[in-house]
Simulated scan of single mutants.
Amino acid sequence: MHDFTVNVQNRVLAVVRSVLQQNAITADVHPESRLVDIGLSSMGMVELMLKVEAEFDLILPQLAITPENFQSVKTMERMILNQLGPGPG
């Protein structure tokens, strides 16, 4: 399960970096980095949500699309793992 989680985190990081690059935002992103603090706008967040759905081939339920779930790579990773199946524990 650990390898799967690391893979999800790496994929989320790649998507976040790609959205930041498209929005001309230069920042060093870590799993705990707050995306709003880095400078991602609300439109950037929508773009990020759509790219996350495409990357993981899923449609996020409306209840999962919250500012809390898109705060950082870590919170998005947790949300995606919950959508993909039962989490560890």
Rank of each mutant, 00 (worst) to 15 (best):
M1E: 08
M1P: 12
D3L: 12
T5K: 14
T5Y: 08
V6F: 12
N7S: 12
V8T: 13
V8K: 01
V8N: 03
V8W: 02
Q9W: 00
Q9G: 00
Q9F: 03
Q9I: 03
N10S: 09
V12Q: 06
V12I: 08
L13Y: 06
A14H: 15
V15M: 08
V15F: 06
V16D: 10
R17L: 15
R17P: 04
V19H: 01
V19C: 07
V19N: 01
V19Q: 04
L20D: 07
L20Q: 00
Q21T: 02
Q22R: 13
N23Q: 06
N23H: 13
N23G: 00
N23D: 02
A24T: 13
I25Y: 09
I25S: 03
I25H: 02
I25V: 09
I25K: 02
I25T: 04
I25W: 08
A27L: 04
D28C: 02
D28N: 10
V29A: 08
H30Q: 14
P31L: 01
P31R: 08
P31S: 15
E32A: 15
E32R: 13
E32K: 13
E32I: 09
S33E: 07
R34H: 14
V36L: 15
V36S: 15
D37E: 15
I38N: 03
I38C: 07
I38P: 05
I38D: 05
G39T: 10
G39W: 09
L40E: 06
S42M: 05
S42E: 02
S42K: 12
G44F: 11
M45W: 01
M45D: 05
V46W: 02
V46P: 05
V46T: 12
E47R: 07
E47Y: 07
E47G: 08
E47P: 00
E47V: 04
L50H: 10
K51C: 06
V52F: 01
V52Y: 03
V52H: 03
A54K: 12
E55F: 01
F56A: 07
F56L: 06
D57G: 05
D57L: 05
L58N: 00
L58T: 02
L58A: 08
L60N: 09
L60D: 11
P61Y: 10
P61T: 10
P61M: 11
Q62M: 08
Q62C: 01
Q62I: 13
L63I: 14
L63W: 13
L63Y: 10
A64G: 04
A64Q: 11
A64L: 09
I65Q: 05
I65N: 02
I65H: 06
I65M: 12
T66H: 09
T66F: 06
P67Y: 02
N69G: 06
F70W: 08
F70E: 10
S72P: 10
V73I: 15
V73D: 04
V73T: 10
V73E: 01
K74D: 15
T75Q: 08
T75N: 04
T75P: 00
T75S: 14
T75D: 00
E77Y: 01
E77A: 09
E77G: 06
M79R: 02
M79W: 12
I80H: 03
I80A: 01
I80M: 05
L81F: 03
L81Q: 13
L81H: 11
N82F: 03
Q83K: 08
Q83P: 04
Q83W: 07
Q83T: 07
Q83V: 13
Q83F: 04
Q83C: 10
L84P: 04
L84A: 13
L84I: 09
